[in-house]
Design a protein around this nucleic acid. Sequence first.
DNA 1: CATAGGATCGCCT
DNA 2: GGCGATCCTATGT
Length: 197
Amino acid sequence: MIPNSWFCGGDVVEIARAMIGMEIFTETPEGIVSGIISETEAYAGAEDRASHAWNGRRTARTETMFQEGGTVYIYLCYGIHSLLNIVTNKRDIPHAVLIRAMKPVSGAELMLRRLQRDVFKPSDLYGPGNVAKALGMHFSDSGIKLGRSLPASPKKIWIEKAKTPIAPEEIAAGKRIGVDYAGFDALLPYRFTLINK
DNA sequence: CATAGGATCGCCT
DNA sequence: GGCGATCCTATGT
């Protein structure tokens, strides 16, 4: 299991890149599921117009991002979708990595049931809303720590290092999705994808 | 209290 | 490529 200290203090962009190929797990009363992380985006806190914490904005929702690395920040988007992020710095530095896609590994049946689907379409599990849904994570779980559950929550979430190492040329960088409102920051190459071979 | 808008998705054409 | 769903969050009065 990747220790939470690994998420404390490094460059959020490099952490987002390094998370490609890692396997993310959740355990709930329904069972254990996992997937290989295949797309991430870095959100670089106060200096990043695309971040909810831009300009140091600190509210009830974004407070979770100001916690220490290894905290899980989940928020509701468009009234429907829970989006899952891992906080990646020291306390009070609101950096986070959004998990946008993964390749199903364990618990495919449970994930498909959660998605109300018969097959993965496309073959990868694409879209941040779908990732959180398949993992059984909900915005009300925001604030949970990697590696252990909140006392009130029966859910657990953790990340393991890649079983097969990912070569640098297998990772593509590009601009982030859906952040056109962020001006120049929308053009930063903060999105990483695992190239299919 | 009222309001506008969003780090999206799936279905339709 | 376009559009509606759907509701919390942030902001303003």
